[in-house]
Design a protein around this nucleic acid. Structure first.
Length: 591
RNA sequence: GGUCGCGUAGCUCAAUUGGUUAGAGCGCCGCCCUGUCACGGCGGAGGUUGCGAGUUCGAGCCUCGUCGCGACCGCCA
C-alpha cells in the first residue's frame, strides 16, 4: 500500500463508508468554523472534502491554499442534507485522524479558481496555472488525442521515425532558427520548419509508411494560433493516390474525435476545389457552419447603366455580393468598419443595400433598372431587414474581399447575438485543386503555391512550360470550422520532373538548386516510389477539441506574443565564453 | 515594422463633466464561530492610478512621449 495514498480525490463513494483511507494532494479551500474545519483536498482527479476536529488536529487551523498534505482518516457518509451534488465525491467526506503537511505553499499570486486572469501572470507562474482543473483537462485531452493518433497509425502499419532537429538552412519559406556550429566556425544548422525532406527520403528508403509527432520551428511573428515551436502530426506514405490519403485521414480524425470527445464524425469529408471554395466563400479555408455565401452577379450587371459595375465586367472582372441576413440595422460606425475592412482587403470601396422599412436604402440602387433590381431580389433572396454587400473587381480580389467581410461579419453577428454556432458541429472538408504555381508580381517569376515538391495533376503537365498558373497541384488542405488544420500533397517522385520544376518553372539557377536540393533529386534517382503525405497542426487541432481560443491553452509551456518564456525569462543572455567558443560576436543595437 | 485595444490594491473591477482623503468583492493578517462547500461575524494591513512630461487653480480622467501585454495586418514555401 502506498505511503501517500490509497485512493485519489475523485474516487470515494458511499460504498467506501467506514473504510480507512489515505489521501494526498493540495488544499483547494479551507472553511474554518473554529470547532470544525473543512478542507477541500485536490489532486489531478478531483476534490474530496476532509473534516478535521481541531481539538485532535490543531494543525488544521494553519492550513492554507495550495499547501501539500497527506491525510489519513475514515470515510463517512455526509450527514443528511449536507451532500454536495456538484462534487463527484459529494456523498461522502473523510474524517481525518492524521495530518501531515508535506510542504507549505506561498500565497498564490492569484486565486486559482479565477478564470479571467492576466495571461502574463499565468505564464509567469505556469506551474500554478496548470494546476487548475481546466488546464489539467486540456493537457489530458491533448494526451488522449496523441494516443489516438499513435494507436490509429500503428494499426495502419505506420512506423514512427525521429528526424533531425539540427538540419540545414533552406532560405525559402519561413524564417528559421539558426544554431551556430562550434566545430565548424561560421557555419550554422537550422531548426526544421517541418521534416518535409526527411520524410520523402524515408520513402526513398522504403519505409513506405512514416509518421512522427514532429516538433517544428518558425522564427516568424506570433499569433493566437502560432507559436515559434509547434507540433505537427507528420506522415508520409508510398504507393498512394490522393483518395487513399483522404480515407486514411478521415478515419484518423474519426478515431481522434471518438477517443477524445466521444463524437462520431461522418465521412467522407466533402471536397471543394480551390475555385469552388473561393467562389462560394471567398477563402481557401471556408467555414460552412453559417451562410452568407457569395453570389455571382457578373451577368446581371454586364450591360448595366451603373458604370462602376459594368466597367469592371467589361475588363474581365466580376461582381459578387453577400446577403447579411438581419443586419440592415447596422449602425454608421459598423458600416464604416466594414468599409475599412473592405479597403484593407484591397477593395476601392464598399457598395451596399439595406432592405429596411419596405424599401431599399442604398447609394447605388438609383442606377439600377427594374430588371436588375428584380434579378438582385431573386438571386440574393432579399427580405426585409437584410444587408447586401457588393464587391466588383478581378475574380480573386472580389472573392477575397467578400470572404474577409463574411468572416468578420460572422464574428460581429455572434457578438451581437444575431448568429450562434452550435458547439458540437464539426465542419471538416478537403480543399483541393490548388494552382501549383502563383505568379509573384514583385519578383516577376512563378513561385510554388505550396512547396516545390508538390506533383502536378497528371493531365495538366503539358501546361507546365506554357502556362504554369493553369496547372493544378496534387495538393490538399484539411479544413475544420474555417481553420486550416493541415495540408499535404502527392510529391514529385521522378528526378527529371523535380529538376524541371526547379530550373525551368521556378527559374532557380542550377548551382543553387543543386546545393540546396541536390541530395533530394539524387535520392529520387535511385528508385523513389510514388508517395505523398500530410502534416496536421496538432496544437490547432487540440485547441479546437478543447474549445480554446488560443493554442497557448493547449501547450504546457508556451511563449508569449513576443516569443518569450515569462517563467524562465528566455531568451536570455549568454556568457562571453560561449560566444567565443562559437566564434560569434553580437552587434550593438542600432541607436 | 504598422493599426487598434488594454494598463487603478496580490487578483477581478469601480471611480459622475477634470473637483475633498482613489473605493468594492475576492485574497492576505488577527480574533470569534461544530455542518460548511462562494461558510459566516468583527477588526486590520495593503495604492508612485505602468513610467515621464505637458495643459489646468486642480489630472486616475485631457494632450504628447515612453514602457508592458494582447488582437489583427505585414510575415508564416
Amino acid at each position: 500500500m502506498s505511503f501517500y495514498r490509497t485512493h485519489h480525490c475523485a474516487e470515494l463513494r458511499r460504498t467506501h463508508a467506514d473504510g480507512d483511507v489515505t489521501l494526498s494532494g493540495w488544499v483547494a479551500s479551507r472553511r474554518d468554523h473554529g470547532g470544525l474545519v473543512f478542507v477541500d483536498l485536490r489532486d489531478r482527479e478531483g476534490l474530496t472534502q476532509v473534516v478535521f476536529d481541531p481539538k485532535e488536529l490543531p494543525g488544521a487551523h494553519a492550513l492554507r491554499s495550495e499547501d501539500v498534505v497527506r491525510i489519513r482518516g475514515r470515510v463517512a457518509p455526509r450527514p443528511p442534507g449536507t451532500a454536495n451534488p456538484k462534487l463527484a465525491t459529494g456523498e461522502i467526506e473523510v474524517h481525518a485522524s492524521a495530518l501531515d503537511v508535506l510542504n507549505r505553499s506561498e500565497t498564490p499570486p492569484w486565486p486559482l479558481d479565477e478564470e479571467n486572469v492576466n495571461e502574463d501572470l499565468r505564464l509567469q507562474y505556469r506551474y500554478l496555472d496548470l494546476r487548475r482543473p481546466a488546464m489539467t483537462k486540456n493537457l489530458r485531452l491533448r494526451h488522449a488525442a496523441t494516443s489516438a493518433v499513435r494507436a490509429h497509425l500503428d494499426g495502419e502499419g505506420f512506423v514512427e521515425v525521429e528526424t533531425p532537429m539540427l538540419f540545414k538552412s533552406t532560405p525559402e519559406g519561413a524564417r528559421e532558427y539558426l544554431v551556430p556550429s562550434r566545430v565548424h566556425p561560421g557555419r550554422f544548422y537550422a531548426l526544421p520548419q517541418s521534416p518535409q525532406q526527411f520524410k520523402q527520403l524515408l520513402m526513398v528508403a522504403g519505409i513506405e509508411r512514416y509518421y512522427q509527432m514532429a516538433r517544428c520551428f518558425r522564427d516568424e511573428d506570433l499569433r493566437a494560433d502560432r507559436q515559434p515551436e509547434f507540433t505537427q502530426v507528420d506522415l508520409e506514405m508510398s504507393f498512394i493516390e490522393r483518395e487513399d490519403l483522404y480515407r486514411l485521414i478521415e478515419e484518423l480524425m474519426q478515431r481522434v474525435w471518438k477517443t477524445a470527445l466521444g463524437a462520431d464524425l461522418s465521412a467522407p469529408f466533402p471536397r471543394l476545389s480551390f475555385r469552388e471554395a473561393m467562389d462560394a466563400f471567398g477563402t481557401d479555408k471556408p467555414d460552412r457552419r453559417y451562410g452568407m455565401r457569395l453570389t455571382d452577379l457578373t451577368e446581371t450587371f454586364r450591360a448595366s447603366a451603373f458604370k462602376v459595375f459594368a466597367g469592371v465586367v467589361a475588363t474581365g472582372g466580376v461582381v459578387k455580393a453577400i446577403n447579411v441576413k438581419g443586419f440592415a440595422d447596422a449602425t454608421q460606425s459598423q458600416m464604416d468598419a466594414l468599409t475599412e475592412q473592405a479597403k484593407a482587403a484591397g477593395a476601392k470601396g464598399l457598395a451596399w443595400i439595406k432592405a429596411e422599412g419596405g424599401t431599399w436604402k442604398s447609394p447605388i440602387v438609383k442606377f439600377f433598372n427594374d430588371a436588375e433590381k428584380a434579378a438582385l431580389a431573386e438571386r440574393l433572396q432579399i427580405e426585409e431587414g437584410d444587408l447586401i454587400l457588393f464587391a466588383a473587381d478581378s475574380w480573386l480580389s472580389a472573392c477575397e474581399t467578400l470572404g474577409k467581410l463574411r468572416a468578420a461579419l460572422a464574428e460581429t453577428l455572434q457578438k451581437l447575438g444575431k448568429l450562434s454556432l452550435p458547439k458540437d458541429v464539426w465542419d471538416f472538408l478537403w480543399v483541393v485543386d490548388f494552382p501549383l504555381m502563383t505568379f509573384d508580381a514583385a519578383s516577376q517569376r512563378h513561385v510554388s503555391t505550396h512547396h516545390p515538391f508538390t506533383a502536378p495533376v497528371a493531365e495538366d503537365v503539358p501546361l507546365l512550360k506554357t502556362d504554369p498558373t493553369k496547372v493544378r497541384g496534387q495538393h490538399y488542405d484539411l479544413v475544420l470550422n474555417g481553420v486550416e488544420l493541415g495540408g499535404g500533397s502527392i510529391r514529385i517522385h521522378q528526378p527529371e520532373v523535380q529538376r524541371m520544376i526547379f530550373e525551368d518553372v521556378l527559374k532557380i539557377p542550377k548551382d543553387l538548386s543543386d546545393s540546396r536540393f541536390g541530395y533530394l533529386i539524387r535520392a529520387l534517382g535511385f528508385g523513389a516510389p510514388p508517395h505523398g503525405g500530410i502534416a496536421l497542426g496538432f496544437d490547432r487541432l487540440c485547441a479546437i477539441l478543447c474549445g480554446a481560443e488560443s493554442i497557448r491553452e493547449v501547450i504546457a509551456f508556451p511563449k508569449n506574443a513576443k516569443a518569450q518564456d515569462l517563467m524562465t525569462d528566455s531568451p536570455g543572455e549568454v556568457e562571453p565564453r560561449q560566444l567565443r567558443d562559437l566564434r560569434l560576436q553580437t552587434a550593438k543595437p542600432q541607436p
